[in-house]
Computed example of a mutant assay.
Amino acid sequence: MLKRRTVLVATAAAVTAATGLAAPAVAGPPAPVGASGYAFTLLGTVNLPGQLSYGGSRVAGITGADYDPASGTLRLVSADRSNRAPARFFSAQLTVGSGVCALRLVGGVHPLTRPDGTPYPATGPDAADPQAIRYDAASGRVLWASAGDRAAGAAPAVRAATANGAFVAELPRPGNERVDVPGQGPQAGGGYRGLTLSADGSFVASALRWPLLQDGATPVRMTFRDSASGEPLAQFAYQLDALPGNGVAELVTVDESRYLVLEQAPLPNGGNSVRLYEIDPSLGATNLLSEEAPAALAGADYLSLQKRLVLDLADLRIGTVQNLQALTWGPELPDGRRSLLLVSDNGSVGNRSTQVIAVAVALS
């Protein structure tokens, strides 16, 4: 059993003999990029081996990541639907400083289990498709999102688990996210992908990847739940960029009112279009859970969330951008900037690597 594996994400000036992995050398520090209020600076990138194993499980298909600053723990959830090993997440230690981001897989492998303590099956209405993970420091629990499987009758779900992955609760879902109504509800492959807690921890926000079947081509629904009860309180429409295959990959919280939305779309050349948009629900949008709201958005009148592009990953000039699905704030940097980590889903395919990108973010 692998007890410890250290992988370094380094700046261009840093090299690690332990793994031989480092960002390519460049002339001088990279210049910040981004929109007003945000300055993003690349710290480094690294590709984790496609066959990397820990605790008897492949560290692959990473679709969610979350960093706990109090403990320094980074949680990584795999989209493996119990095909190669039980649905699971990994714990690691993450440190950032002096130009190096070190990730040590030392915290264990945690199977996600059903109420009876058994693993989720790979198929059927009880199947799980883990896509996002967040740690709730107030309760000490882990929240995770399953995309569901429309064909199998498995609806998207946000679930609470212990820190070791044992089932605690399933949060109520809006009625419009059922998968048993013909022509309505989430598309196949379009279930939950984004998950985050509000800055004060009072709300849990989730986002579908693609529009509901009754909603047209671009409006994705984001739902805000009460953290204590899990009850849905509000739901808003977020308009995707009109790119083939484009969808929401993840959400992160910026402050009391602002969130970042990660959009990802495959490109014909084999790379990906990956962009970060800022939204602020407090600026006003139609609550789609209200009695006055349209049941179907296609052709209806409603106000969507306003979005603002703050980063196109292509502007970081890192070469080919992989299928980035995981997004989390990391440790605060010594100069006061925040670190941001993005991790790709390699699809658990052969030797395909997992791309990790570390970015410094100055907010103003």
Rank of each mutant, 00 (worst) to 15 (best):
G56F: 07
Q187H: 06
A23M: 02
P294Q: 01
R134Q: 13
L243Y: 09
A79N: 15
P266D: 09
A128I: 13
G107C: 00
G271Y: 05
G148K: 11
L363C: 05
L208C: 03
A326M: 11
N164K: 14
S257E: 11
G55Q: 10
A169C: 09
S57K: 15
V168N: 02
A157Y: 06
L305Q: 07
K3A: 13
N346L: 01
R75V: 08
A205C: 14
V77E: 10
A122V: 09
A154E: 13
R193E: 15
A295L: 13
R5P: 09
E256N: 14
V33W: 04
T320Q: 15
R317I: 12
A22C: 10
A188T: 14
L212W: 00
R275P: 01
Q235M: 15
T123C: 13
L309Y: 13
P172M: 06
A102L: 10
A161N: 04
L112A: 10
N346P: 08
S82Q: 06
V181G: 08
G190L: 06
R75F: 01
P268A: 04
S290T: 09
V181K: 00
L42G: 11
E292C: 07
G319D: 03
S344G: 04
Q264F: 08
G299A: 10
A300S: 08
Y67H: 01
A102F: 01
G230P: 07
G247H: 03
R141G: 06
T19Y: 04
I279K: 04
A234W: 10
D149V: 08
Q264P: 04
A163I: 08
F167V: 09
A163Y: 03
T286R: 05
R178C: 12
N351C: 10
V204E: 07
T95F: 05
R338E: 02
G20H: 06
L340R: 07
L283F: 07
V274D: 03
L327P: 03
V26M: 01
P115T: 02
L143A: 02
S282E: 05
A127R: 07
V26F: 02
L313I: 12
V252T: 15
R114M: 13
A234N: 12
V179H: 08
G148V: 00
L267R: 15
L311R: 11
I62D: 08
G107Q: 03
R84L: 14
G37F: 08
E170V: 03
F89K: 12
P119M: 03
T19S: 10
G201M: 07
V321R: 00
S82C: 04
R275Q: 05
